[in-house]
């Protein structure tokens, strides 16, 4: 699918910029985007190493098992097929924990580790399994208990109580995440080849 979406997005942008008179900005974007991707990777390189290291400590010490057991009633319901695979459930549990705490930098390397475990379960390695789709949707619409960045920017913009959005944020992310998971389950059949 990306073989079509990607070129279409680029061609559309180029054609649209001609009509909107933004051709020159588009020329800049060609170069800045590539440099930015490299800068982002270098920034992530440190973060990935650090958090993967910290999480390896949690794993070997047995803390991961404890957290995973705590979350297992919910996780077993969302991913019934990994019920008997403790390693995979542990990886998923650590990613969910990092997301809940708002530690996005930690969540990503943990999520990739979980994706590798889920991939081991699927027969065709280059096609996303139902569980992989569910897991990615869970991460794109992650439930966040503490909206750290949003509250910080609200504080800077002079909000009286920057954290007063917390109940609305938790409810919004909880419900939209549920809708995403239901949608993922509902679309499963239709897209299978």
């Amino acid at each position: 699918m990306m073989n079509y979406i990607w070129p279409c997005l680029i061609l559309f942008s180029i054609v649209f910029s001609v009509f909107s008179g933004n051709v020159l900005q588009l020329g800049d974007a060609v170069f800045t985007s590539v440099t930015e991707a490299v800068t982002l990777t270098i920034k992530m390189l440190g973060m990935f190493c650090f958090w993967s290291g910290i999480m390896q400590i949690a794993k070997v010490s047995g803390l991961t098992d404890k957290i995973s057991k705590l979350l297992s009633p919910i996780l077993n319901r969302i991913f019934p097929s990994i019920r008997n695979d403790v390693e995979t459930r542990n990886a998923v549990a650590m990613n969910v924990t990092a997301n809940l705490l708002g530690l996005g930098n930690a969540a990503t390397p943990l999520g990739i580790a979980a994706m590798r475990r889920l991939q081991a379960h699927s027969e065709n390695k280059s096609v996303a399994s139902n569980d992989m789709v569910l897991f990615v949707v869970l991460n794109t619409a992650c439930i966040r208990l503490i909206p750290t960045t949003a509250a910080m920017l609200r504080h800077e913009a002079g909000a009286a109580a920057p954290m007063d959005i917390l109940p609305a944020t938790v409810l919004t992310s909880l419900l939209s995440c549920t809708i995403g998971l239901i949608a993922a389950r509902a679309f499963e059949g239709r897209h299978y080849e």
Partner: peptide
Amino acid sequence: VYYGAIGVKKIRHTIAAALCAD
């Protein structure tokens, strides 16, 4: 990031479901 890291090419209904949530 997630699919790129593990080399999955066919992502099926991921985008559709994720946009529903958004």
